[in-house]
Amino acid sequence: MKQIIAIAKFTIKENISNRLFNAFIGFGLFIIMSTVFLKEISLYEESKVIYDSGLFLIEFFVLLITIFTSATLVLKETKEKSIYLVLTKPVTRNMYILGKVLGLIVTVFLNIAIMGGILYGILVWQKAQISLEYMYSLIFIFYKLSLVVVIGVLFSVISDSVITANMFTFSIYILGHAIYELKMLADKIENIVVKSILEFLYRILPNFRVLNYKDYLKHIDIDFGKISLYVLGYLIITMVIINIVFNRKKI
């Protein structure tokens, strides 16, 4: 366990020291702060414009960072062989993956917390009404991006190219939002091969729609526990797959 925590801590440290990562965060924070100016051009509910666009920007910027780091980190270490320096220490491959994923998920949490905190400050400054919904929105963004982490790491383990790993992770993020459309398409299509593929995707892709609190769910009664369990289950299953693949991978 100590080794897993050490790997997680170092992953966070690596991300924090990364200039590109910091540039993204800095730019994201700047854009979020700039939402203040949106109220000048909005016709009504100025603070709601800041609220909605702020949450969208948090998800967007943290998503970009998350895809890049998760789909790159393991692949880069495998390609550069720096992974040898870890795997020749008392660390199993499973521990390595667990540590990396844990570190990345904590990084996502910290990013959302920082950006969410800044946005909260702006909203308070603008005397906006802030309810528990705001916290829920941030938690659901965190859930969604935690799933992006494991999907990114999965592609990082499967793929041999950073570009394809990033592209596939991003595609899954998009398709995960269009999961019901995929199902509808599958029901309409008669070609059995395409139908089966769409059905398969509908079953295996993460359902990001149920995690889209900021856009859809705030008007619906949601079972927070059930959704949390869904996220946890998806994380565990993906982690098991990653570990199976990674244990077979030639490094």
């Binding site: 100590k2 080794q3 050490a6 790997i7 801590k9 170092f10 440290k13 690596e14 020291s17 990364n18 200039r19 550069e80 062989k81 720096s82 040898y84 320096l85 870890v86 220490k89 008392p90 660390v91």
Partner: peptide
């Protein structure tokens, strides 16, 4: 190893602490 890459933006002490923690 013959060729070893290290995360270049990390400080030396942090890297050593990390390896020591792994042990």
């Amino acid at each position: 190893p013959e060729i070893s890459y290290y995360p270049k933006e990390v400080k030396l002490m942090d890297l050593m602490q990390y390896y020591a923690e792994l042990y």
